[in-house]
Nucleic acid binder design. Structure first.
Lengths: 148, 148
DNA sequence: ATCAAATATATGTATATACATATATTTCAT
DNA sequence: ATGAAATATATGTATATACATATATTTGAT
């Protein structure tokens, strides 16, 4: 590096963490804005999708497939529960375990939000172009694998 | 789509928001882990870099260049201030405005953390390969531009 | 000069996130 | 059968984030 400012400029421009976090903020806000009418946050929507995909799923399983810390999973699930979108039942064979399932109200919300999700998602895919979009997803996956 | 589950699977696999957020979590944790010894969070480090880059910068300017909501900027700055890494002075010509500058202690922290940052950053760049890394950064930027 | 509008920052509230630790329950070695 | 270890979830604490709103100050129209 030539001098201190060049180094700072390099960090500012290329920090992989800051770049990804910034992109995450931007994309999140775009989704939030469009989904606002549903009252669902995009994170809640995505979690609901994952819960709907499985008839019943435990807190920790959900955490694992979504790569969320267990305590984060617990807290995010509770928000869905408080809104009546999921129900929680104790497993009979193991009282520590809790099964999460989507409720009818949750399914309604899901159906309300999915067209909106599709709309933004399609716009993003179109704006980037299919190739660049696929590359992006691939790069993000490789990035994560390269870290573990 | 063939059926409901195919649609859910599509969302789960390709949601641009969830993909980016997941990558952000993973990368953030990698940085946090390595930087733990410094007591600096990666977000704090990056903000400190941005503050150091400018002799004096206002809260809102910092928010603008980092693409952070003003209230988020305020709160993140306060954490740095409470740790003594930045000082805050009121502008004499406009008492609403506050100038943020890095302190000596902040500079020390910065110098302590930068080699660690460089280490992780280099590892990530190397693991992905220069081309893929550059593509990723480019894709993230295009993505954001395509949204605004 | 005054008062409304604009601007800069702060605060209230809520979600998303993780780490450390606590609690409840099950499993396993003896 | 019992107690230690393992496991599943919850809670305490802290940061990062945004939106809505409040507060303080400046600017600008009259």
């Amino acid at each position: 590096m030539n001098n201190k400012y060049d180094e700072l400029d390099y960090i500012i421009q290329f920090c992989s963490c800051a770049n990804i976090r910034k992109a995450a903020r931007t994309v999140t806000q775009a989704f939030e804005k469009q989904m606002q009418s549903t009252g669902l946050k995009v994170t809640q929507y995505y979690m609901l999708v994952n819960i709907a995909r499985h008839k019943e799923i435990t807190v920790s399983e959900l955490g694992e497939i979504m790569l969320l810390e267990q305590s984060t999973a617990t807290r995010n699930i509770n928000i869905l529960k408080n809104n009546g979108y999921v129900s929680i039942t104790k497993a009979k064979d193991d009282l520590r375990t809790k099964y999460i399932s989507i409720t009818d109200l949750g399914l309604e919300k899901l159906e309300e939000a999915t067209p909106i999700w599709l709309n933004i998602q399609t716009k993003i895919e179109d704006n980037l172009g299919k190739d660049k979009f696929n590359d992006l997803i691939k790069s993000l996956n490789i990035l994560q694998e390269s870290i573990e």
